[in-house]
């Protein structure tokens, strides 16, 4: 049962990002470079968060404080990624075989967001996955055996959220639309804050609102990328 747990949780957390990667990124070397760069940016944000956590002793005993700093630092690095990509846009166009590379501004945002999210998801889940191989599961003191599946579902949620957040964030910066940026940072705080409820085993209280935020964020990201209800209707109609 336990190896099954490992593989099914991996599938749940990383299956969707892998499909997105395979269909949209894998065929373009420049996109892969952007994705890896964004993943690296996330790693750097993680390093800085750790240093802050390590250096500021009071942070260690209070999860919420550490969380606040980690969210702020991640968003700062998202902004850094934006600046970097906008600066290197022209250069990337030069080396790209596909000169269409940034025909849509949001394309780079999507690719970097997926990289950012995948790396955060990988680091978030790797500990849990290591223990999911068993033979035991949670329940001796507290928790249930559904801890692993909820962890994986939360990880998937965070990966997708990061992808959409990057789209909204980049679009907000492009348009000087600070409402979008506020939404990104606000919902990041909200979802991370919700995850603190897990210490009480209120898994549903974390998962359901997080996925609601995900849906809202997905809609905003769709619109930020230039999608409209009209366009959607047209496409659906054209298909039928």
């Amino acid at each position: 049962m336990t190896l099954a747990e490992f593989f099914s949780c991996s599938l749940l957390a990383f299956g969707a990002p892998l499909a997105m990667f395979a269909l949209t990124i894998a065929n373009d070397p420049v996109r892969i470079i952007i994705m890896i760069a964004a993943a690296f940016a996330w790693l750097l944000s993680f390093l800085v968060s750790s240093l802050v956590w390590f250096a500021v002793v009071p942070l260690r005993s209070h999860l919420a404080f550490g969380m606040v700093f980690a969210v702020i630092i991640q968003e700062a690095f998202r902004y850094g990624t934006y600046r970097l990509l906008r600066k290197t846009e022209a250069g990337l166009k030069e080396i790209s075989e596909n000169h269409n590379i940034s025909s849509n501004k949001m394309e780079m945002a999507y690719v970097s967001g997926l990289g950012f999210g995948t790396m955060s998801g990988a680091f978030a889940l790797v500990n849990v996955l290591a223990d999911s191989v068993g033979p035991g599961t949670l329940g001796l003191y507290s928790g249930t055996e559904f801890f692993f599946v909820t962890s994986a579902a939360m990880t998937l949620c965070m990966i997708l959220l990061n992808t959409f957040w990057s789209i909204i964030f980049f679009s907000g910066l492009d348009d000087k639309n600070y409402l979008k940026i506020t939404w990104v940072i606000g919902s990041h705080f909200l979802v991370s804050g919700l995850s603190l409820l897990n210490r009480n085993q209120w898994y549903a209280a974390t998962i359901l609102p997080s996925y609601l935020v995900l849906v809202a964020t997905a809609v905003i990201a769709f619109r930020s990328a230039g999608g409209t209800t009209k366009g959607l209707m047209q496409t659906l109609a054209a298909r039928s």
Binding site: S49, L63, G66, A70, F123, V128, F147, T150, S192, N198
Partner: peptide, 12 residues
């Protein structure tokens, strides 16, 4: 590793 688990995903 601990920090990350704490901050970003579900934690005990």
């Amino acid at each position: 590793i601990l920090l990350l688990s704490v901050v970003l995903v579900i934690r005990l």
